Deep mutational scan, measured.
Amino acid sequence: MMAYMNPGPHYSVNALALSGPSVDLMHQAVPYPSAPRKQRRERTTFTRSQLEELEALFAKTQYPDVYAREEVALKINLPESRVQVWFKNRRAKCRQQRQQQKQQQQPPGGQAKARPAKRKAGTSPRPSTDVCPDPLGISDSYSPPLPGPSGSPTTAVATVSIWSPASESPLPEAQRAGLVASGPSLTSAPYAMTYAPASAFCSSPSAYGSPSSYFSGLDPYLSPMVPQLGGPALSPLSGPSVGPSLAQSPTSLSGQSYGAYSPVDSLEFKDPTGTWKFTYNPMDPLDYKDQSAWKFQIL
């Protein structure tokens, strides 16, 4: 009977010793046993002879290597770790002494450095960015050149030099007046198309007034536009458009034309069986010896 009264063996659950049927240790109110408190290391007290050895090595170098620390530790009968900690504390003490010396050398008012006064946003004049500046400075420094007289040679050079070769001289006033084509001369031969040399188009003023001019072949195509416009036809070669000034309004060009419109200028042929003959000019830059190549039959 006494065997049943004795408590059973101890069981360990999660490293906790349980005594038989008792489960009081598993209750929430019972805390787990805490780790033992780490003991504080005792402070090391250095003797005068030990301090002399350490100070002598510190005077040589503030960062001794492990071999120098072990050698000193053997002399003063201390572990190497204590020597390492002593050098660490000695360097910190040396830095603190240097900072105190710097503070003593500075004057009393030198510690508080005078800061520059901050400028207020409204006091300083700042350039306004509302208006974009002129990058080319046209509004201040540029002045347009004065327009020359209508009959000045410089204007003629600016007008005619675009179309004339570089080897030719500017046309005088008398020749510029001949550039304007007359109405009857352009409409006299509506079906004849003559190819003149390129030099005649640039230099010869008579080429624009003769039936064999460069633009005589364009007349049949330009004249039928007159009834559609409801007024006189516009002429690209009329009046002052080739003269001194090219800047004319469309209203000033509306009254200039080749001449009176005639039914002869239409595109319809009077004789459907007729042929169109292209007159060959020996001055043509295209060297075609066979003139029969310039004739064709309209079917």
Rank of each mutant, 00 (worst) to 15 (best):
Met2Leu: 11
Ala3Lys: 07
Met5Glu: 00
Gly8Ser: 09
Gly8Phe: 13
Asn14Ala: 12
Ala17Arg: 14
Leu18Ile: 06
Gly20Glu: 01
Pro21Gln: 02
Ser22Ala: 05
Met26Leu: 08
His27Val: 15
Ala29Tyr: 08
Ala35Phe: 09
Arg37Ser: 03
Lys38Ala: 12
Arg43Thr: 15
Thr44Met: 15
Thr45Arg: 09
Thr47Gln: 02
Arg48Phe: 12
Leu54Pro: 13
Ala56Tyr: 04
Phe58Gln: 13
Lys60Val: 03
Asp65Glu: 10
Glu71Met: 09
Leu74Arg: 11
Asn77Cys: 02
Leu78Cys: 14
Pro79Gln: 02
Ser81Arg: 06
Arg82Met: 12
Val83Met: 14
Gln84Tyr: 04
Trp86Tyr: 12
Arg90Ala: 12
Ala92Leu: 12
Lys93Ile: 13
Arg95Gly: 13
Arg95Lys: 04
Gln99Thr: 02
Gln101Tyr: 06
Gln101Ile: 15
Gln105Ala: 07
Gln105Arg: 11
Gln105Glu: 05
Pro107Cys: 05
Gly109Leu: 03
Gly109Pro: 10
Ala114Asn: 04
Ala117His: 05
Lys118Glu: 01
Pro125Trp: 08
Pro127Asn: 12
Pro127Gln: 10
Thr129Ile: 07
Thr129Ala: 07
Cys132Ser: 06
Asp134Met: 06
Gly137Asp: 09
Leu146Trp: 03
Leu146Met: 07
Leu146Phe: 07
Ser152Met: 05
Pro153Val: 12
Thr155Leu: 11
Thr155Lys: 10
Thr155Trp: 15
Ala156Gly: 06
Val157Lys: 07
Ile162Ser: 00
Trp163Glu: 01
Ser169Asp: 04
Pro172Ala: 04
Gln175Tyr: 12
Gln175Ile: 13
Gln175Lys: 11
Leu179Ala: 04
Ala181Arg: 11
Ser182Arg: 11
Ser182Thr: 05
Gly183Asp: 01
Ala192Leu: 13
Met193Asp: 00
Met193Gly: 01
Thr194Met: 11
Thr194Gly: 01
Ala198Ile: 11
Ser199Asn: 03
Ala200Ile: 13
Ser203Asn: 01
Ser204Thr: 05
Ala207Asn: 03
Ser213Met: 12
Phe215Met: 02
Phe215Ser: 01
Ser216Asp: 01
Gly217His: 08
Tyr221Asn: 00
Ser223Pro: 05
Pro224Val: 15
Val226Ser: 03
Pro227Cys: 14
Gln228Val: 13
Gln228Ser: 05
Gln228Thr: 11
Leu229Pro: 02
Gly230Met: 12
Ser235Val: 15
Pro236Gly: 04
Leu237His: 02
Ser241Arg: 12
Ser241Phe: 14
Pro244Phe: 14
Ala247Lys: 10
Ala247Phe: 15
Gln248Trp: 15
Ser249Asn: 06
Ser249His: 07
Ser249Gly: 05
Pro250Gly: 03
Pro250Val: 10
Ser252Glu: 02
Ser254Gly: 04
Gly255Pro: 02
Tyr258Val: 05
Tyr258Met: 02
Ala260Gly: 04
Ala260Cys: 11
Ala260Trp: 13
Tyr261His: 03
Pro263Ser: 07
Pro263Val: 12
Asp265Tyr: 15
Asp271Trp: 13
Thr273Gly: 01
Thr275Gly: 02
Trp276Asn: 00
Lys277Met: 07
Phe278His: 00
Pro282Gly: 04
Asp287Phe: 13
Lys289Thr: 04
Phe296Ala: 00
Gln297Phe: 10
